[in-house]
Simulated scan of single mutants.
Amino acid sequence: MLTTPMLEPHAQRWLRARGNAPYGPAAHTPAQTAQALREHAPARRNPALQRPQGRDVHLWHIDLRDMGTDAVNLLDAAELARAQRFVYAHDWRRYVAAHAWLRRVLGAYLGIAPQHLRFDADAHGKPMLAHRHANGDAALRFNMSHSKDIALIAVTSGPEVGVDIEALRDDLPGPDLAAGVLSAGELDELARCAPLDHPAVFVGCWTRKEACLKALGVGLGLEPRALDVGLQAQRMTLQLGSGEPAVDLAPLPCPPGYAAALAVVGGFAGVARQDAALVWEGMS
């Protein structure tokens, strides 16, 4: 994707038209903006959300067309810098909205103002809450994925989690992509499918692999074709090797034209869909 060092002018105009605080990178650097917001924002909110219990998963469906209030003001310096590199206004909007909603959701669980959340990353770059937010309890684990104007955020109280959502495309998979992503058995399955079904079964398979890789925290450090999840959209337990933790993997309901999947290391119990309105209760 092409990048640009400054926020696009059309994105600035869109931001002002929606009533968000103006953001002028020529006047303030991302670090200066983030520091100013931290100094003037309240440190904590009253907790309103109960954390997932045991091995339950809370699943948030977010409409990225709604950025919410002061979305840009919630991001830290690194996020602001990343947002500035998008060329197209819709990519900028979706990135800002997704990360603002992630902060609102996690802040509501923790009773912390969204802009005060701090994140670390594991060895493969998977984001996690900074240790300071654990408060001696089982740490919240989360994962986010977004495609077009839909984002999914999965949250657990301890188990490592991965989630993925992808929009279907008629031009997928193509022979080269299929060979690079699918196992030998999955390639055989694909060959037996009707060509019109190829996009849906391939993208569904890919979301399950991606969710699994994200739950394990290995990213693309493990070849996707090394995971054999099959082309059937069904819940399954994936055992990668002797002594490795099992991964509970399942497709997720999603709007037409999308495929989505959830993976939890060690297994999950229930999946409870959450309402974004609960976030505003946690910030009141």
Rank of each mutant, 00 (worst) to 15 (best):
R93P: 04
R93L: 14
R94F: 14
Y95S: 08
Y95P: 13
Y95N: 14
V96C: 14
V96R: 14
A97I: 13
A97S: 14
A97R: 09
A97F: 08
A98W: 09
H99I: 08
H99F: 01
H99N: 01
H99R: 12
H99Q: 05
A100E: 10
A100N: 13
A100M: 05
A100I: 10
W101G: 08
W101C: 07
W101H: 14
W101M: 05
W101K: 03
L102H: 01
L102A: 13
L102M: 15
L102C: 15
L102T: 12
L102N: 12
R103Y: 01
R103Q: 03
R103G: 04
R103E: 11
R104W: 10
R104I: 07
R104Y: 12
R104H: 04
R104L: 14
R104D: 10
R104A: 06
V105L: 05
V105F: 05
V105Y: 06
V105T: 08
L106R: 05
L106I: 13
L106G: 14
L106F: 13
L106S: 13
G107Y: 03
A108F: 09
A108Y: 06
Y109L: 01
Y109P: 00
Y109G: 02
Y109E: 03
L110D: 04
L110R: 08
L110Y: 11
L110K: 10
L110A: 03
G111C: 04
G111S: 06
G111L: 02
G111R: 01
I112T: 14
I112V: 15
I112P: 06
I112W: 01
I112D: 01
A113I: 04
A113W: 13
A113G: 07
A113L: 03
P114L: 10
P114V: 02
P114Y: 00
P114M: 06
Q115C: 15
Q115A: 15
Q115E: 15
Q115L: 15
Q115I: 12
H116P: 11
H116W: 14
H116Y: 13
H116T: 11
L117M: 06
L117S: 01
L117V: 04
L117D: 06
R118W: 09
R118M: 13
R118K: 12
R118E: 15
F119Q: 05
F119H: 09
F119C: 05
F119L: 07
F119V: 10
D120N: 04
D120I: 02
D120K: 02
D120F: 00
D120H: 09
A121Q: 14
A121W: 06
A121K: 15
D122M: 01
D122I: 11
D122T: 05
D122W: 09
D122S: 13
D122R: 04
A123R: 15
A123H: 06
A123P: 03
A123M: 08
A123F: 00
A123N: 04
H124Q: 02
H124C: 08
H124E: 10
H124V: 00
K126N: 00
K126L: 09
K126W: 08
K126D: 06
K126F: 05
K126S: 00
K126H: 00
P127A: 04
P127D: 01
P127W: 00
P127I: 02
M128S: 08
M128I: 04
M128V: 10
L129R: 09
L129A: 13
L129M: 07
